[in-house]
Nucleic acid binder design. Structure first.
Lengths: 232, 232
DNA sequence: CTCTGGAATTGATCTAAATCAACGGCTTGG
DNA sequence: CCAAGCCGTTGATTTAGATCAATTCCAGAG
């Protein structure tokens, strides 16, 4: 793997401040590989052998216990996953599978840990990244504990809407069964939640949604930057 | 504040590897203060002015939105809270209040961030701490998404039991209404969940619980180290 | 173009959990 | 020592959401 092949990776907040030589070393050790859709990349409980970077495609993080399964998050280009497990040299807490055919960069954990020890700028970048991860999960946890299913959906729609430019239209970035699991409900219940939101101007056509009454929807959703904020 | 006053703080994983002089500087800038019970120390949305260390007593982390409130976690000696907000110089995502009269060390955020920039060992220790925080919340999130209320209670009892020496007896470390909120249920529902567990050898006397049939309880609870593990 | 299988929807029903209400018991302060 | 109030429990009821079952919709394969 040559670092010049992957300018997007170099420009990730996580990697941009580290030294050239260390970045080069990391990329030398890494594998760039394309996987088919629906392939289970890692399984919770397994030792963390690689840090993954999604270059193209999409990866779903999920967890299982006692026969049940739930989607924990989605990772899109250019994003990384399971940093914490890699740093702690611990087992994965979540499993991951590709949603589509996806191109992934796999950086061996030992190399990450090695350079983390030697490259101060990298160590600091990792702190920022981990703090972001932490705050993201805390927000998701608040979302789940403090809101009903309909409220979670309404706020999620508002978020996607903003992310996609706020034109009154939005596209669901994953299929509905995955969205349901992400929001902590069943597919049937998601469908009903969409119906509940119809009087608030939410019109569904496949995975395209239009929001025709943002004010009404916001009044219902009561978005809170300390839950829904991208960055706060 | 003199560092010699607080050997327990120095021995925290977060602080133990930093240089003496930097630790001294941090403690010079810090305040040691005792607060009465039920005092709201920080409020979500406020800028993160201090990193807190619980020296004595107990602190409850909680979150509010739209009139609802939920307990997010408990911090006991010697533990810290809201590290991520301090490092990012962001607002708090959670509020905190004392459960009892508590002695807390308050370290100004700027000092933390300053020394984080200058002390490499401290920066690395912070990574470990943040990774732990992150993994803890992920586990809590899995717990909530993948288990029923009764299962969450059963697993929590098993955890307290192990933490307290595995003698067949345990003491709830917080009152029942707080435990209910921590587990994501109402106090009424917690009371009924205890009744549900009676046939599995769970005997409740105030905040003292005895577990008379660990095997039956474990069969029901199906504890999973990737959710309940202290450290995995 | 048609066939087929998964995804999504809809309806009916069931269940877990929340809510509302009432009561007993323990603590606390006068 | 008694009164007041909160905590926890219990019972009755409601509600949100899950489950089960049937049907429709749609995209991709042949």
């Amino acid at each position: 793997m040559r670092s010049s092949d992957l300018p997007e990776v170099r420009s990730l907040e996580l990697f941009e401040s580290m030294s050239d030589s260390n970045f080069e070393a990391l990329m030398q050790a890494a594998y760039l590989q394309t996987f088919p859709a629906q392939l289970e990349l890692i399984t919770e409980g397994d030792p963390a052998d690689f840090l993954y970077v999604v270059i193209e495609g999409c990866v779903e993080l999920f967890a299982r216990t006692n026969g049940r399964e739930s989607t924990m998050g989605m990772v899109r280009p250019v994003g990384t996953f399971i940093l914490a497990a890699v740093l702690k040299d611990a087992v994965y807490l979540m499993s991951a599978r590709t949603c589509q055919r996806s191109k992934l960069l796999m950086v061996p954990s030992e190399n990450i840990r090695d350079i983390f020890q030697r490259d101060e700028a990298f160590a600091r970048a990792i702190v920022v990244e981990l703090a972001n991860c932490y705050r993201t999960v805390v927000k998701e946890h608040k979302d789940l504990k403090l809101r009903t299913a309909v409220e979670r959906l309404a706020n999620r729609l508002l978020r996607y809407h903003t992310d996609q430019g706020g034109t009154g239209m939005l596209e669901l970035p994953q299929d509905k069964r995955t969205l349901a699991s992400l929001l902590g409900m069943t597919p049937e219940n998601l469908s009903r939640a969409f119906n509940t939101l119809k009087p608030y101007g939410v019109v569904v056509r496949g995975n395209k949604i239009s929001l025709d009454d943002l004010e009404a929807l916001s009044t219902l959703a009561k978005p809170n930057p300390l839950i829904d904020g991208r960055d706060t």
